[in-house]
């Protein structure tokens, strides 16, 4: 019950999808399975939120170091949830003005919109933007031309960095027409089209082989690691 049923579910679900891909008659089964999968993905979102709150509540109750920040996380989570689910500040849909709950939950001026615009956007986007600083220090401290491989990487990075700006055109703008291919912007195009495509293609084929092998192991019941220990 604990291991056999989930094993059968995984094998059946996978094969239904594969069969639906090749047999038109079974396409309907595939569509149904996909629909369930998409609905279940929301369950995974709820589970994720639940797990987050559980962890932070445990941190608060144990008064672990930094528990105050956990209170902030929990507070923000529930505030967003209540404001969003209650559609606070949302007007009805103009097509159905007599249905109070029919409006767009992210309508401009609404509560969830305010949270999104003034909290989610600046916080998430700045977090990612910070990488620009760290990549600069990495370039200064870690990028060393120690051997042929590292030198190739560095030179390529330099050419692409300059070639993907106007500097690529400007730096070698004096070259005669017959030598124009040496301009950094043209070299960048060549690097992307030939060596990059070759390297990435090899990686892509390698990953594909790995994914197919892993999928087959799951579908044939050889890999059962997702069932846990007991």
């Amino acid at each position: 019950m604990k291991r056999l049923v989930p094993l059968i579910i995984a094998i059946c679900a996978g094969f239904v999808l594969i069969i639906a891909n090749f047999i038109p008659y079974a396409q309907e089964w595939g569509s149904t399975a996909q629909e369930w999968f998409n609905i279940l993905a929301v369950g995974a979102m709820v589970l994720g939120g639940g797990n987050l709150i559980k962890l932070h509540l445990m941190k608060v109750s144990a008064k672990n170091k930094g528990w105050g920040y956990s209170v902030v996380t929990i507070g923000c989570f529930f505030a967003t949830l209540v404001i969003g689910l209650s559609k606070m500040g949302v007007h009805p849909n103009p097509i159905y003005p007599d249905y109070d709950w029919s409006g767009y939950y992210l309508e401009e001026g609404s509560g969830l919109w305010w949270i999104y615009e003034h909290m989610v956007v600046p916080l998430t986007s700045m977090m990612f933007a910070m990488l620009a600083f760290y990549v600069a220090t990495a370039a200064f401290r870690a990028f060393r031309a120690k051997n042929t491989e590292a030198t190739l990487l560095l030179v390529t990075a330099g050419i692409v960095l300059l070639g993907r700006t106007y500097a690529g055109v400007w730096l070698f703008g004096w070259l005669p027409e017959s030598m124009e291919w040496l301009r950094f912007d043209n070299l960048t195009v060549w690097i992307m089209d030939i060596p990059n495509t070759a390297g990435t293609r090899a990686i892509t084929i390698g990953i594909a082989l790995g994914v197919v092998a892993t999928s087959l192991r799951i579908l044939l019941g050889v890999d059962r690691s997702y069932l846990g220990q007991d």
Binding site: Y69, Y105, V120
Partner: peptide, 26 residues
């Protein structure tokens, strides 16, 4: 403080969207 806020608001936001856009209609 900002980090704690981004975790809380993002998780809440994603859940709201999942519920209104998928759970309710589908």
């Amino acid at each position: 403080f900002a980090e704690a806020m981004v975790v809380g608001t993002s998780a809440g936001y994603v859940m709201v969207i999942g519920l209104w856009d998928v759970f309710v209609p589908n």
